[in-house]
Design a protein around this nucleic acid. Structure first.
Lengths: 350, 350
DNA sequence: TTGAAAGCGCTACCAG
DNA sequence: CTGGTAGCGCTTTCAA
């Protein structure tokens, strides 16, 4: 039998079983009940089993809000991503799972690649009282965000981002392995004019990828001019298509597209519309290919990394940070690799 | 200047500005501060502006836990999905956005298609105090879940699921439009043995899709035997591949695959390995195709619907439900359509 | 239009 | 090993 509660003063939600109800039913103090429920040591085994039993019988469920208020911790982590595409979804799923193992839930919000929305979202999450905030910022060069991050309470984990003045736990991607692999592969096939579609320099991959590409070119004795690098501010199909046009005009024989899948789709559509065949007329390297896409030809060679792992690492960083907020910031690096496929071939001799 | 707080009795988080700090700074009671912050009527304009000003100056951020405790509402909605694939991610993104417009945040958890995990997750979210729970259950026939849903407090929104004994707000999918469109299209091309890969009957699409397929067959004067329907319990590539084998053994000339993308990828891989060409040897209809996959041939004809819209509707149902928990359950239906593409053709005459 | 006081459910402290 | 008490920050009476 559920205990009879006083008549509800609140028009709203149901009252629910509290530790006081358990205490009464067990003829014991709520302090001890709390101790049992939290698995603290120093409770007589008999008491423990009894309380556990009563709690189960009454269908007790802890009130998280009350606990949060008292302990100043919400067991909630926020995850801010630009967009829930396959890459970020995968990160989210693994991050969520990792956190769940530690009794922590994940609040997700998308900015739709809008730096202004990002500020609002971070603000919201801070006010929500998340214990930690995992950030895949659209722009890590936005001074408003940088300023905001200094004033908020949650622990921070940056996902392949570097914010000036913020020394936070970070999961970095080392782009060099993948990019150099791709360039080396293309050079070996005989390509010299290797175009790059990248993100703009407002976030770390947008800075690191072009740098790695240029380095790799130099290593191969090639000087990649700026006309070979198109930096996209947006990642819809139209942007991808326009980048393709610019690179074809620059006489590239190969393109490395380190941008989200929606933009790469734009590249593919545009090439098809122009009658440019892959890899016959143009070699293409992408940046992760969804499984369903990879089931069709040409399979896109890709610079890739383990997104799920990034989520797991972010989760671990968050959890360990919460256990000890005073430790110094840690940086974990995830490598990238080049996965060859049927989308590359020797350049057409003209 | 931030007010000087007493020395922190808590080893943990920072103290933060409270309404008491504002009240003191403004020389006013915390009641009035609360009223202003919540935009309640009955406050002198002068007081209102002053309080607003002071709050901004001190950098006040409401403590959500305290508010939740008092109001018994968390401004949090839970979303349970089997897996964050493209379909569910899209729903999640739009749902999240819709909720955000109303000041509500979204907690996401994935069950990895595990009905047991689902029970735990629902339990967790209830204990977390979510105001509403949006559920894409792996199995809506799991009695444990049905029982649990009756005991918990949050408002429920079911996403294309029907749980016995639970009268909740629901977003239903009407599969008939899409399935009948697909069957009619294939029949018109001359197909008679049209196989179906579906989910099992543990959830609503797993029941509705086969029913619609059978009806559509009857309407065309065809009697689809049970050997033409493979119901998958899992949705990895291997499952998709094995389903393909069984249907080919049943001499189908066309396959409709109403299963998640990972399984459809398995179908494609398997067909390629067997040297079965699409649509030359076999016509294929899928169930939504990611943009990057659609950029390559063959483009998979699909039975599809607006996933984003489903998320938006779910969000609206949740929000309006919270505004009035006593209204009777509402059911919104989303239609499906058939989108032809290059993956279908007349059957090979043998 | 304003304020005092009560209390949401829980954990932390201290005394026994 | 156990219990009493204080209070987290907020909203909500109720009274002025």
């Amino acid at each position: 039998m559920a205990p009879v509660n006083g008549n509800d003063p609140n028009g709203g939600r149901q009252r629910g079983v509290t530790i006081i109800d358990i205490a009464r039913a067990a003829g014991i103090s709520k302090t001890t009940v709390s101790r049992v429920l939290n698995g603290e040591a120093g409770v007589a085994p008999a008491t423990r089993t009894h309380v556990t039993e009563v709690a189960a019988r009454l269908g007790y469920r802890a009130n998280t809000a009350a606990r949060s208020l008292r302990t100043r911790s919400s067991a909630l982590v926020g995850f801010l991503v630009p967009h829930l595409n396959e890459v970020f979804s995968q990160q989210a799923e693994r991050l969520s799972l990792e956190l769940r193992h530690h009794g922590v839930d994940l609040v997700i919000s998308t900015s739709d690649w809008d730096p202004v929305a990002e500020v609002e979202i971070v603000e919201r999450m801070a006010s929500r009282g998340v214990d930690a905030l995992v950030l895949s910022l659209t722009s890590d060069r936005n001074p408003d965000v940088a300023r905001l991050l200094k004033t908020i309470d949650p622990a921070l984990v940056l996902l392949d981002r570097e914010v000036r003045g913020i020394a936070a736990d970070t999961v970095l991607t080392d782009q060099s392995g993948g990019v150099e692999g791709a360039v080396a592969h293309l050079v070996e096939l005989g390509h010299e004019r290797i175009g790059l579609i990248s993100m703009t320099d407002v976030n770390r991959p947008g800075r690191e990828v072009p740098a790695a590409w240029r380095r790799a070119g130099e290593r191969a004795g090639l000087d990649f001019g700026p006309e070979l690098n198109v930096a996209l501010p947006r990642f819809d199909a139209a942007s991808g298509a326009s980048a393709t046009g610019r690179l074809l005009a620059a006489d590239v024989t190969a393109v490395i597209a380190c941008v989200p899948e929606a933009a790469i789709a734009g590249v593919l559509f545009d090439l098809r519309d122009r009658g440019v065949s892959i890899p016959g007329d143009l070699s293409l390297v992408g940046y992760h290919e969804p499984v369903l896409a990879s089931a069709k030809e040409p399979r896109i060679a890709a610079i890739t990394r383990d997104y799920g792992e990034m989520g797991v690492i972010a989760g671990r960083l968050a959890i360990t940070r919460l256990a000890n907020r005073d430790q110094r910031p840690r940086i974990e690096t995830v490598g990238t690799g080049f996965v060859p496929a049927s989308s590359t071939a020797p350049p057409r001799r003209s």
